[in-house]
Design a protein around this nucleic acid. Structure first.
Lengths: 208, 208
DNA sequence: AACGATACGGAGGAACCCTCCGTTTGTCAA
DNA sequence: TTGACAAACGGAGGGTTCCTCCGTATCGTT
């Protein structure tokens, strides 16, 4: 079926839809070049529409971001859904985290999408956060139920950690490092206590 | 002794020094109110100097940030130094990480300082990154040498994870969550393998 | 006191933000 | 088809911030 923006609203006009899509395309392009700081007038120019048109469709900068990046978030959610059916809990979580890193490494917009989870205000933030939290919970809860994971780390917290891990994706070698960090984290989830209070260090057993 | 900006340069003039300090004071104040986004003209106004004076002392926004936040970074470094002498490796690292969280929670500017580690360009980034990496290495290496920590996680990587953990410090309950995340991470460092390749999950022993 | 050297201040051009409103265009009923 | 109106368009324009440039004021020295 065709892409439709029509909700229950009176009526969407044809040129309106066309321009909206042009704007989204242009925004994706301009943002990926100069992430997040690009001028909205540049987006309008790129799209070949007036600045007024841009503001009518997306009243705030945030709104434009939201429209551009919502799709990426949904993609991650879908992956979690799939993994939660197939892989075993520990490997499922690990794979999803790894996939995140790979996506960030290749897809331009993904980083912005995830950073907005933390900084974007209101709408997109809420949406992404809930969506991704749900995705992680899907993977996490099974493991907790099965006794594979400690139970005192929430999906929200894990999400924060993840965002952080590639928050500062540096040059060349960031990817292996990020993968390793995720592994460390998953190990921590598996090996730790399940009590709420910080405990003293107990002698490790799986150490080399 | 008095604060001195004089290096090997020809001669620093008295009013120059005075204005520089006024600017730093004003910047700290204005930035803590509206972190990082505040207008530089507001800073100049607050300091009671012309905008030209601000730009002469700090040619770029970055330069001003650097001057304001360098101090915070040094503070963290000093703490690591102290902890690396007193506490045992595992607890030393844990304490430093916890201290970070506490500082971020109370001191306004600390978050900006740490975020700049990831995003600030060139000068401050390099300085902070090296400084904090060194701080962590101080705490980490002892533990690795003693066999307390796995050896395949570098100080740089740990720093990234840390920055990430309170990158998105949310409302009310972020602090307990952050502390828990750090604990999970430290547990991962203790319990994990020391080989480079991701291994299959081994049966945990300290689990509840 | 006088005189360079140095630093100061702020005017000004450019970029951007966002609003407002006159003009154009799509849609639908006749 | 045609006419008419709501909806959407475009961009001028007022306000803000950025950063540069240069005439003026101040410092420090002789």
């Amino acid at each position: 079926m065709k892409a439709k923006t029509a909700k229950t609203r009176p009526k969407p006009r044809a040129d309106s839809i066309r321009n909206r899509e042009r704007l989204l395309l242009a925004a994706a392009k301009v943002f990926s070049a100069d992430a997040g700081q690009a001028s909205l007038e540049a987006v309008a120019r790129e799209a070949g529409v007036g600045i007024g048109t841009l503001y009518r469709h997306f009243p705030t900068r945030e709104a434009l971001f939201a429209a551009v990046y919502r799709h990426e978030v949904d993609q991650l959610f879908a992956l979690a859904e799939k993994l939660s059916r197939n892989a075993d809990p520990v490997e499922g979580l690990r794979k999803w985290l790894h996939a995140n890193i790979r996506l960030v490494a290749t897809k331009k917009g993904m980083v912005e999408a995830l950073q907005l989870v933390a900084h974007g205000s209101s709408e997109l933030k809420t949406y992404s956060f809930q969506r991704l939290t749900a995705a992680i919970a899907m993977l996490l809860d099974r493991g907790v139920a099965a006794g594979d994971f400690r139970s005192d780390v929430s999906a929200e917290e894990l999400l924060r950690a993840l965002v952080g891990i590639f928050y500062s994706r540096g040059g060349k070698g960031w990817q292996p490092g990020a993968l390793r960090l995720v592994n460390v984290f998953v190990d921590g989830l598996c090996g730790g206590t399940s009590a709420g209070t910080p405990r003293r260090q107990s002698p490790r057993s799986t150490a080399k």
